[in-house]
Amino acid sequence: METKVIPVLRIFDLAKAIEFYIDWLGFTIEWEHRFDDNAPIYMQVSRGGITLHLSEHHGDASPGAKVYIETGGVRELHKELTDKKYKYNRPGLEEAFYGAWEVMVHDPFGNRLLFSEKKPS
């Protein structure tokens, strides 16, 4: 059986979510769902092997979540993000005590994404 975990993150403003997740972080919208034109949005975004669900629905998730993403290319991601000069977020590149490169970003809704890449031994 294949297992996949997809975090659901609470958002409050679709335009800000697109600016952050699509325009700055480089995710792609895979699909969007609304029950009607005046309903909150629920959407799936992805980048590489990372998939997230973003929801405006009040009962889906609480703001302030932290998602740990173990991936490769964290130093390159850091350069890509800082080169975009996004005025609301300038993440650092940290070397974790457990032998990994890390980049932490904070979305406009209080959620945090921690991208982590184990350093070669």
Rank of each mutant, 00 (worst) to 15 (best):
Thr28Gln: 08
Trp24Pro: 02
Phe12Pro: 03
Thr51Pro: 04
Ser121Arg: 13
His106Asp: 11
Tyr86His: 09
Ala65Ile: 02
Asp23Pro: 01
Lys16Ile: 07
Leu81Gly: 10
Lys87Glu: 15
Lys79Trp: 07
His106Phe: 03
Lys84Asn: 01
Tyr98Gln: 06
Val105Cys: 05
Gly64Gln: 05
Lys4Met: 11
Asp23Tyr: 05
Phe109Thr: 02
Pro7Tyr: 06
Leu77Pro: 01
Asp37Pro: 03
Pro7Asn: 10
Ala17Met: 05
Gly72Leu: 10
Ala96Thr: 13
Arg75His: 13
Asp36Met: 03
Ser62Ala: 15
Asp37Ile: 06
Val105Thr: 13
His58Met: 05
Phe12Trp: 03
Glu76Asp: 15
Gly49Glu: 12
Gln44Asp: 12
Leu14Val: 04
Glu2Gly: 11
Leu114Val: 15
Asn38Met: 09
Glu56Thr: 04
Tyr86Leu: 08
Lys4Gln: 14
Arg47Phe: 03
Phe35Leu: 08
Ala61Lys: 01
Phe12Val: 00
Phe35Ile: 05
Trp31Ile: 01
Leu14Phe: 02
Asn89Ser: 15
Pro108Lys: 00
Ile29Ser: 02
Arg75Phe: 09
Arg90Asp: 15
Thr28Lys: 06
Pro120Phe: 11
Pro108Ser: 00
Ile69Phe: 08
Tyr68Ile: 14
Gln44Thr: 15
Lys79Leu: 12
Arg47Thr: 07
Ile18Met: 06
Lys66Asn: 12
Ala39Met: 00
Leu9Cys: 06
Ala17Tyr: 01
Glu32Val: 14
Glu80Gln: 12
Ala61Trp: 02
Ala15Gly: 12
Ala39His: 00
Val8Tyr: 01
Glu56Asn: 09
Gly110Phe: 05
Val5Gln: 04
Asp107Lys: 01
Arg34Cys: 08
Gly73Cys: 14
Ile50Ser: 04
Trp31Tyr: 06
Val74Gln: 10
Ser62Leu: 15
Phe115Asp: 09
Asn111Pro: 02
His58Trp: 00
Ile50Met: 10
Asp36Trp: 08
Val5Arg: 02
Met43Asn: 03
Trp101Val: 07
Leu54Gly: 06
Leu81Met: 08
Thr3Leu: 11
Gly99Met: 13
Met43Arg: 05
Thr82Cys: 12
Ala61Met: 03
Arg112Leu: 01
Leu14Ile: 05
Trp24Arg: 08
Ser121Leu: 14
Tyr88Thr: 10
His78Cys: 09
Val8Arg: 01
Leu25Ser: 04
Ala39Arg: 01
Ile11Ala: 00
Phe35Ser: 12
Leu25Glu: 00
Glu30Cys: 02
His53Phe: 15
Glu94Trp: 09
Gly59Arg: 08
Arg47Val: 07
Asp60Leu: 03
Pro108Cys: 04
Ser55Trp: 01
Pro63Gly: 15
Ile41Lys: 03
Glu95Ser: 12
Ala65Pro: 03
His53Leu: 13
Lys119Tyr: 02
Asn38Leu: 07
Leu25Asp: 02
Thr71Glu: 07
Phe35Cys: 08
Trp101Lys: 06
Phe115Arg: 07
Ala15Asn: 13
Glu94Cys: 05
Glu70His: 14
Ile22Gln: 11
Val103Cys: 07
Phe20Glu: 02
Gly72Ala: 09
Thr82Ile: 08
Lys84His: 07
Gln44Arg: 15
Arg75Cys: 14
Lys87Met: 14
Met1Thr: 08
Asp23Trp: 06
Phe109Glu: 00
Val103Asp: 10
Glu30Asp: 11
